[in-house]
Amino acid sequence: MSNNAFSIDLSRLKKQPKTSSTKDTDQVAEELGFSSREIVKKRGRKPSPRTGQVHAKVMPDTSVEIANEAKRRGVQQGVLIEEAWQLYKQNMATK
């Protein structure tokens, strides 16, 4: 028989019982400089790109309507103002 030919008897392979807990080994690893290299995702909401501000006083009923509409759509009130501004610009352009 050549040195290259051999077959495996699976029943002879040995396997040890192991724990799933990584608490002890993580601590040992950390002490030896084998620390976590995974990128930790930042928790919480991403910062809004809307950093501009408008200073608008409106009539109370308008304020309530804007707030309700924003809540219904699940967007910030600023989004409605942006959309209104786009419509205003389109309207001015066609005049």
Binding site: T22, T25, D26, S36
Partner: peptide
């Protein structure tokens, strides 16, 4: 495994025969 010292290496070794 990756060729660095990492927790991933340590965890894999914990499961090795």
């Amino acid at each position: 495994l990756e060729g660095i010292a990492s927790r991933l290496v340590s965890r894999a070794i914990s499961q090795a025969d």
